[in-house]
Each structure stands twice: as C-alpha cells, then as structure tokens.
Simulated assay, not measured.
Amino acid sequence: MSSDKRENRPLLGAALMTASAASFALMGAAVKYAQGVPVFEKVLFRNLIILFIAVVSLASRRISPWGEAEDRTKLFLRALLGYIGVVCTFYALGKLPLADANLLNKTSPFFVTFFAAIFLHERLRRIHIPALIAAMIGAVLIIKPGFDVNAFPAFIGFLSAIFAGAAYTLVRSLNAREDPMVIIFYFSLLSVLVSLPLAMRGFVVPNPPLLVALVATGLFGAGGQFFITLSYRYGKAADISIFNYSSVIFSLLIGYIGWRELPDWFSLTGALLILGAAGLVYFTARRDR
C-alpha cells in the first residue's frame, strides 16, 4: 500500500495551477482554430498524445498504470467525469466565442471549492466565498459575454464546469495515494476508448495547419492536465482552485498576440479583481497557518 504523498505547500500548488491555466488557454486557442474537425476527433487527438506521454512516463519509472486496487473505482469515476467535461468544453468552444466558452468553463473552481468542503471535509474559510464572487465578477468584466448566443451551447459550456469541478475534487482525493500519471493514464485511456469509435464516424483528414493545431491541442492538454493534477497534491482545493481563473488573463494575452485584441478598462479592472481575489485567498490562508 502506498503512503500518503499529499503535502500542504500552497505556493507551489498555486504556481502549478497557474501553469495549468496557461496550458489550457493555449489548448483552447488550438481547439478553436481547428474549425471543421468534429468534436470527438479533437478529443481523440488530444487524449492519444496524453495517453502516450502517460504510458512512457509510467513505464520509465516502472510504476503500474492501474493504481491501488482500492482506488480504481475513484480513478474510473474521475476519468469518466473528466471525459464528459472535456467533450462539453470542446463542443462549447466550437459553438461559442472563445472568451464566452472560457468563462463558462472557468466557473469550475467554484464547484471544486464546495465539492471539496462537502466530500473531502476541507475547511471552507469565510474569505473563500467573497473572493470567488470577486473573481467571477472580474471574469465577466474581462470577457463581457454576449447574451445573444444559442442557449444550448451555453448550457453545455456550463455543464463542463460542473463535471470538471467534480473531476478535480476526485483528483485532490486521489493525489494522497496515486502518482499523477496514473490518474492521467486512466483519464486518457478511457477518453481514447470512448472517442475512437465516435471519431471514426465522419472522420475528417486534417490538412497540415489543422494537424499542427490538433497536435498542439494534445500537447497543451497534456501539460495542463499534468500541472493541474500535480497542483492538488500540494495545495488544498479551496486554497488553489481560484488560481484557475488566471486562464482568463492568459486568454487575453493570446488574443493580443494572435489577433491584436487590446483589453479595455473593463478588462483591466476584471484582471485586477481576479489577481486581487487570488492573492487575498493565498495570504489569508498563509496568515491562518
């Protein structure tokens, strides 16, 4: 039986969460670029690359990919919830503006905080609720989502956050015992097995630019998955999940670099709210220890 590997190092956990947010922002841009490629084909490409990386990592360290016997139900459930969340996210990215889809998905830390309080019995500090509200208001100010979008894609985008929040709460629980790559292996293997037959129906042969975008989707997805999985090993969900909102800021940077989009004063105010809320949570947690 493996020992408890979970540590409480919130600064490292926050840094890893921020790295994950940057990777997922780049992945979202790649997914958005690959227009014309069906959702399940995008999911398949993404997770084939992640599966390869996970297998090589585990094999090189001679770690069994199947994990502890008592954890396998949790590992499967985390993989299933994560897969549904990814499909919902990719669907929303294909139907909504990139910023709108990002906002809907990045409400997931809200669900992580409360799921962790309910199921993992992590302490919910009084500061978490106003800080999360401030971060969400900041995200709205940055993204300024339109209200003329089709309701169904928006609802699917919101569902992606619920499933992601549940999956990441299980990641926090599993990281006490399992190697991060074991968790990623389960997730990517299930995703490939489910997506493969669905992707073969209406498969689109990608041209070189689309192929680069699909490969980038997998590489950035792998980086984001690894960093977020590792982040929950070092920090409590309620302390670090708010740093996931930094992906909104990265999306602004990507928009400027790729399309010369400049933020207005609403966006700058939103960025300050997000960074202020994240800093407030961290320093409050540090003071209370």
Rank of each mutant, 00 (worst) to 15 (best):
F163R: 13
G279Q: 00
D264M: 08
L104Q: 08
L193V: 15
S23T: 10
E7Y: 10
L44C: 01
A238E: 12
H121E: 09
I129F: 11
A14T: 02
S191E: 08
I129D: 04
L189V: 11
L48N: 09
D239E: 15
C88Y: 14
N102I: 13
R6D: 01
G255E: 10
V31N: 12
L75A: 00
A176C: 03
L170D: 03
G85W: 02
Y168L: 08
F220H: 11
R286Y: 04
A199H: 11
P263C: 09
L104C: 08
W259H: 14
P209F: 06
F119T: 04
A22V: 13
R287L: 11
A69W: 15
L120D: 04
L211T: 13
L280C: 03
N105P: 00
R233F: 07
F266Q: 14
L268W: 15
G270P: 05
G279F: 01
N105K: 07
I84N: 00
G138N: 02
V281W: 01
R289P: 00
G258A: 12
I118Y: 10
L58Q: 03
A101L: 12
A131S: 06
P263H: 11
A22I: 07
A116G: 04
I50A: 12
E178D: 03
A135T: 12
S195Q: 07
L12M: 05
F163Q: 08
S267T: 06
A131G: 06
L275A: 03
V215I: 15
T73G: 14
F115S: 02
A21L: 05
V212Q: 09
I49R: 04
F24D: 00
G85M: 08
I118M: 13
